[in-house]
Design a protein around this nucleic acid. Sequence first.
DNA 1: AAAAAAT
Length: 643
Amino acid sequence: MDAFELFRKLGAGAKFDLKRFGQDAARSHVGEASSNAFSAIDYFGTGVTSRSQSSPVELDDGGGDDNEEENEVSGAEGKRKQRDEEKDWTAGGPLKDMEGSGITWTSSLDRKIQNLPSDGKEKSSLKRMKHLHQEKVNRIRSQHRINVHGCDVPDPVSTFEDLQSEYRLSPRVLQNLKDAGLTSPTPVQMQAIPLMMHGRELLACAPTGSGKTLAFCLPLLAQLQQPANLGFRAVVISPTRELANQTYRELLRLSEGVGFRVHIIEKASLAAKKYGPQSNKKYDILVSTPNRLVFLLKQDPPALDFSSVEWLVVDESDKLFEGGKTGFREQLAAVFLACSGSKVRRAFFSATCTPDVEQWCRLNLDNLVSVNIGHRNTAVDSVEQKLLFVGTENGKLVAMRDIIKTGFLPPMLVFVQSIDRARELFHELVYEGINVEVIHADRTQQQRDNVVNSFRAGKIWVLICTALLARGMDFKGVNLVLNYDFPTSSVEYIHRIGRTGRAGHQGKAITFFTENDKPLLRRYTQISNFKHIHKVKRRLENKPPTRSTICTTPRILMKKKGKAPNTGPKGEKQAAGGEQKEKRQSQTAVLQQKGEKKTKGQEQKRRNKTQKEGGSEKHKKTTSNSSGAKLKRYCVCVHVFIV
DNA sequence: AAAAAAT
């Protein structure tokens, strides 16, 4: 097996994480179950939801990746019920209308059947038609690798137009879809949209870049129908502000001309006035990270009213279910509690799903439907994955410079493990004459926003980032994801490389690994023979080295964490600033060597602009060295690929 | 294990 093959395994997760992480997750929550506020029974047993709990349906995801879980349905009773329910929906049995939704689930075929005269002979032929219809539905599902589990599952929709005819999606929204260049639904959209339109609670698991955002945004718009002055009727929760913002923008785009009021909380302090209970202006849809919601809900009186929420969407649900002292889990629980309305429905979406999340959904959601697209917890095959042995930390830098020098097609995302390492790598690369930026949670929101915008605009070629950007972010045309630091789990790996190869496009991912990462790699892949990987190492070592350039580097990269004692955040920043200043001069020197002369006037102009944008000057200075035009030139003159 | 998340 060569490195490539090995990596396939890593990404495709054959033996990779499923059981291991499943067990880990289960283990880490054992102690919590009784005390954690999110513990299902404590939490929802308090009569917060008045819905009748249908008996849990055994969910067999077919992947066999949750075998270690105890089966919740015990005894013959449960089994029988499950069989009955399955029989019901696979036979395409008649369905109840959703209360109050006014939407009939009945398919067009069923309507036809109802309209026909019903003597005995007709009936039997109709039965046959129904059977054929069900076969067709099954074919569509298997063709798109849609796996559903649950009872009374509506048919998937094959076109967006069907959403208009069957679910009264506004024509304007349909037009907005078309304007955005979206012509037909992706598999997760085909199945999840009808489900949400029927008010069904669901857990949807679909690969990165497969259109999950649209899969919940469309039904929100379609089901809320039109703006109402009721306060928030739908809430979407995301793990990062960047993702929340992206979802918000998506909702704005889709609802353009429909008059929905979509909102995102920018500053919690301003939030209360804007749409607190006493405010006149009522928004329909809210997108936010959870903690600021908790903050607002906790105020006395609460600055937020979630009593009219009809839909609560939890994006990246496995992330938001992370427990522990500092995890999101408790925050999520508080938000759930605040949605006190009787008709609140919940939907969970993610590319990866832990048994933990699934079990919670199974126990707590009303008549859960679980949708899985393809195999669970796998990397998308539209990403060409490569694994590169670089020996040591220094080797990473060598290989990184090699990639930059040999040529690559920007933009590229570079993932590192920690904020410190992000800073360090940025300092290393700032002088390479490329457009590099860095983003992590320690930067100001203004800086973060600027970086994301510039990256979207193609002004940044290399963006160094932490896990902040690992999930959900949809940057069009990221050509390469570089895992500079080895990901700490398969789940993280899947999300990171999922920033490329989206929406059917091709992408590339390279992952560096060192001697130190081997145990991790071995653990993930259960591979003990590194013979072939050493070959890769040799190849790298035989390359005409760019070694002369690394002599300035090790000091920083080898630096141990927790280095300077008693430097608070402030002291640290100042120190970094000083360092930066010093280095900026040397950078200028490099640039001039390369013939990138700039007049003083230009320089000043740029600086002013930078300051107006509120970006950090040190960063902006490097990125603004190059405009879009220069980027193009770069793309042309460097040859496309690497490694 | 680290990152992210309110003011």
